[in-house]
């Protein structure tokens, strides 16, 4: 059965982030978001490709 939780969210996550960025950075939001997207893509791509493990395995500080 299709419950309420299976409904697609009314708001796309990207839109929410754009609205938050606009509030924080005003007219500069799109510039900052573009730079951040580039960096996050590079992080995700490197992690996919290289499969790095956390070091140290256990956090030093909680």
């Amino acid at each position: 059965s299709v419950g309420r939780s299976a409904q697609p969210p009314a708001e796309k996550p990207g839109e929410r982030r754009r609205a938050e960025m606009k509030k924080l950075y005003g007219v500069g939001a799109s510039k900052i978001q573009a730079m951040e997207t580039t960096m996050q893509l590079s992080f995700d791509r490197n992690c996919d490709k290289k499969q790095p493990k956390y070091w140290p395995i256990i956090p030093l500080k909680l």
Binding site: T37, M39, Q40, F43, N46, K50
Partner: peptide, 17 residues
């Protein structure tokens, strides 16, 4: 290598421990 946008994790190579 790279950082995530929240600056919570740094991806690095050739880590000398």
């Amino acid at each position: 290598g790279a950082s995530d946008i929240d600056v919570l994790n740094f991806q690095v190579s050739e880590l000398q421990t």
